[in-house]
Simulated scan of single mutants.
Amino acid sequence: MDGPLKFERRGAVIEIVLDRPKANAIDAPTSRAMGEAFRDFRDDDRLKVAILTGAGEKFFCAGWDLNAAAAGESAMSDYGVGGWGGSIELPNLNKPVICAINGICVGGGLEAALGADIILAADHAYFALPEINIGVVPDLAVVCLPRRIPRHVALEFMFTGRKMDPYEAQRWGLVNEVLPLADLMPRAREIAALLAGGPPLVFEAIKDIMRRTENMPQQVALEFSRNLASTHKCCHSQDQMEGARAFVEKRKPVWKGI
């Protein structure tokens, strides 16, 4: 397929590969394509998990395509239904998303990765937000990064534009696992297969509750979460009954998402 994205479907898992040589940089049309890909994933009941990665071994994503910027593309362009990178602003994306960082992940590449629920990184990868050097505000990172790592670390990282290796990223909680490149996609697929066999209504409720209650005091959040439609849907589902029956019968549950 021609275009900035490549797709591989493995059962209930969709792999979305950013493929824009040489650095997998994102321009506005690419971001819109990513948004459409994640929207289609969200709306396809046959798909349970998405993996986002980059083509090649050097770059996951170098961020905003500065060639497009130099040609006049505005930082305030239409980046599509999911916002920059396709997923971070997509409403109701309540399915698991895994990001497999196969190389350099900087600027808008890191911001795109922040839309994932689980981030794996190759051991040769590194992260940076060098926008300070070109006078651009990394607005998504400003909002989202302190929700993943300590605030003071996020501020220093953004203020200096320095590089962060994957082991430091793992230490702060940005990355779940660091692996040799050869093991990166097999591990992402292993996790994806595990999640694809899990209870979709529970995953939906977990993401919905977390997103909606993130800035609430604890007691308010607890009370609010109990009244969410996703919570009620899960608690009154056939799947919940199936889970209990499977436990009693000492077998694996068969989840139907109803």
Rank of each mutant, 00 (worst) to 15 (best):
M1N: 06
M1S: 09
M1L: 10
L5T: 04
K6L: 03
E8W: 02
I14A: 04
I14N: 03
E15P: 05
V17T: 08
K22F: 13
I26V: 14
S31N: 08
S31T: 14
R42Y: 14
D45K: 04
T53G: 08
F60H: 05
G63Y: 00
G63H: 05
G63T: 04
N67A: 11
A70N: 12
A70M: 14
E73Y: 10
M76H: 15
W84C: 04
G86Q: 07
S87M: 14
P91S: 04
N94D: 15
K95T: 01
C99V: 15
A100K: 02
G107M: 10
Y126F: 15
L129I: 13
N133L: 13
I134W: 03
V136Y: 00
C144K: 12
P146C: 02
V153S: 03
A154T: 06
E156D: 14
F159P: 05
K163I: 06
M164Y: 03
Q170I: 04
R171Y: 07
L174W: 00
V178P: 00
I191D: 05
L195K: 11
A196E: 01
G197W: 01
V202R: 03
V202K: 09
M210Y: 15
R211C: 02
V220M: 11
S230R: 09
H232Y: 11
H232I: 15
E242Q: 12
R251M: 04
G257D: 06
